[in-house]
Design a protein around this nucleic acid. Structure first.
Lengths: 199, 199
DNA sequence: CAAAATATTTGACACGGTGTCAATAACATG
DNA sequence: CATGTTATTGACACCGTGTCAAATATTTTG
């Protein structure tokens, strides 16, 4: 066996950075190969295809991001937790110069996900999976809040509503790039869900 | 002057249908040319570039869609208006087989909109413009509702929240394709904004 | 230590996409 | 009918994905 001449994880990192910044279709394997100091053919040999490379890079990101969200949702009053959740969400959208947006939302809308066109069902499942897991995390947080009397209502419905808002925020970020606006919507959403003054 | 051999508007219609179904990057001018029975070169001559063709096709759609929304928001109680608004929004996402999603949200996330990459600033403005105009429409509706005592709170904040939810719904549609879920979120949002039983 | 086995790298290739250009064709107008 | 103007057409350059066979560098085996 001839050993690989590049760092598998390092390439994944570099690739994801570019996919995130320029979109999946807007990033060529030549770009990634140049940036990583690897031949294009080696990428095909190691990952199979652009799609497979993206998926691996995305899964890597998704794991890290989910862990960060879990941490943000882990301490303080319910209001504090939700605030930290939205804060991390928005901060993540606005990372980099120029802001790179939400990789999940961008990927999901870019790759079609419909039968026949765009990336495989695999990609859609990866995106949908992260969204589902985020929703579950928020729902658990709300359920716990309900036990402490910090929240009344359906945790499932509220969690889905909150996550829907975060997806909407990802879109607004792309449209207007107005971070204060995003934070206003986040604050308003927390107020609506928790009751104007509650917490 | 030699006259054009194809119908300008017809081509715009055909092009938008394909952009909507397969995404902008996923649609080639060859596809459109074949479908429209026109030579690819003629499209470049008539529209300049793929980007310009998309923009014209999109503006056409945006005008029609905005008019339909305005109509939906035009009659009945505030709750009825908002219900009609969400209904039209979701129905629009789920049009076609397979569902084509929200062209605005898909285009916005697909085309990057960030400096340097993806489509021009022009495209971002077109998408952002439609979102802004929708927000203004909803805001006006809420303001009118406030006069009739059907709504209390900030129309601007509520309108932005509602439109954010619709953008989020566009994303969820792509992720899960679960129309009942979308309608639940919509109903829940109306309840939150108007008060559980109000209207 | 030599040689076989095996995986990686490399460069050439086919194919399809965007966009440009010059040559050609079709009409309007004088 | 001659001329100017615009639309059409086909060839081209360039870049993208993906495939393949040949060359290369290790590890394992004799």
């Amino acid at each position: 066996m001839r050993p690989r001449e590049f760092d598998h994880d390092e390439v994944l990192r570099i690739a994801f950075e570019q996919f995130w910044r320029k979109g999946v279709r807007g990033t060529s394997l030549s770009d990634i190969a140049r940036d990583a100091g690897v031949q294009r053919g080696s990428l095909y040999n190691a990952f199979g295809s652009k799609e497979a490379l993206f998926l691996q890079a995305y899964e890597r990101y998704a794991g890290d991001y989910l862990a960060a969200l879990q941490k943000a949702l882990g301490t303080g009053s319910l209001r504090k937790r939700l605030t930290a959740f939205f804060d991390l969400t928005i901060t993540n959208f606005r990372a980099g110069t120029p802001p790179r947006g939400c990789p999940t939302t961008r990927g999901l809308m870019e790759l079609g996900a419909a039968e026949g066109e765009g990336l495989d069902e695999d990609a859609r499942q990866a995106f949908a999976g992260l969204i589902s897991r985020i929703t579950a995390l928020v729902q658990d947080t709300l359920s716990a809040g309900a036990k402490h009397g910090e929240f009344s209502g359906s945790p499932a419905a509220a969690a889905l509503h909150i996550v829907t808002v975060t997806r909407g925020l990802a879109v607004l970020e792309r449209a207007f790039g107005d971070e204060p606006q995003l934070r206003k919507v986040a604050a308003h959403t927390i107020d609506l869900v928790l009751g104007r003054k509650g917490g």
